[in-house]
């Protein structure tokens, strides 16, 4: 379970995130939507202890992320390119992440096999460093690396942006599988309402840092969200 409690982040007087209470139970596929500046990335950054909240507590599996580093053992994330190491080859990067998560090289190779069609032959065995890959391929590397070592909490910021349609569809399948079969808590943010409704069981709508809607996904959800955003 992930809990955001009285969480507030402000820069000078500008409040960018203000959450009274948000609980995400284990194994939930959680989607976060909102316009630019709604606070989605800020929220994820607080959860990953990358920024210091002005007020409040974030706990990940009962661990206060500010006080202990133990959450790192079961959580993983891909927010942006700063989660990649440009001067490594994709394989080296996967092995590096694997080593940190106690997954041996052989097991990493085994694990990567299921992504062969996702990689489309452009990533593994190529003679390129990550810095020389296209933006879309870089993203694939980052997202797949976040899945190594079967973490129980996975945080992905805008995973579908920049990806080609085929990859988007494949990625959605992977994410669905993770939460339904493996009881993995998956946190996703997205601008694309359709994508996010397809993969998540629950959707939270942020606006200027505040939770406006908290919906259990159903057939009506997409319409509901669309009407909210067209209203303005």
């Amino acid at each position: 379970m992930i809990t955001f409690k009285n969480l507030k982040k402000s820069y000078a007087k500008n409040v960018v995130l203000d959450i009274d209470l948000l609980e995400i139970p284990k194994g939930q596929a959680f989607g976060l939507v909102g316009n630019n500046g709604a606070g989605k990335t800020t929220m994820f950054s607080c959860l990953l202890d990358l920024i210091k909240p002005t007020k409040g507590i974030v706990t990940n599996n009962e661990i206060n992320v500010r006080e202990s580093e133990d959450w790192k053992t079961f959580s993983s994330a891909y927010l942006d390119e700063s989660f990649l190491i440009g001067y490594l080859m994709p394989e080296e990067y996967f092995y590096f992440i694997g080593e940190l998560r106690n997954v041996k090289e052989k097991e990493v190779n085994e694990f990567l096999k299921q992504f062969e069609d996702l990689f489309n032959g452009e990533i593994l065995g190529g003679k390129k460093y990550i810095r020389d890959l296209s933006k879309g391929n870089q993203k694939k590397v980052g997202i797949v690396a976040a899945l190594i070592g079967s973490p129980s909490v996975i945080i992905l910021d805008e995973p579908f942006a920049n990806l080609d349609p085929t990859t988007q569809i494949r990625l959605k399948k992977i994410i669905k599988k993770l939460s339904t079969y493996n009881r993995v808590t998956v946190l996703i943010s997205s601008h694309d309402l359709q994508d996010v409704t397809e993969v998540s069981e629950r959707i939270v709508l942020l606006e200027k840092g505040k939770i406006i809607k908290d919906i259990k996904t159903s057939k009506k959800t997409l319409k509901e969200l669309e009407s909210y955003f067209t209203k303005e």
Binding site: L48, D49, L50, K72, T73, S75, S76, A77, L79, D80, S82, F83, L84, I85, G86, I97, L100, R101, N102, G149
Partner: peptide
């Protein structure tokens, strides 16, 4: 360039 990654990994 990849400081956030280092801060989130299992180390």
């Amino acid at each position: 360039k990849h400081y956030p990654l280092m801060m989130c990994q299992n180390i």
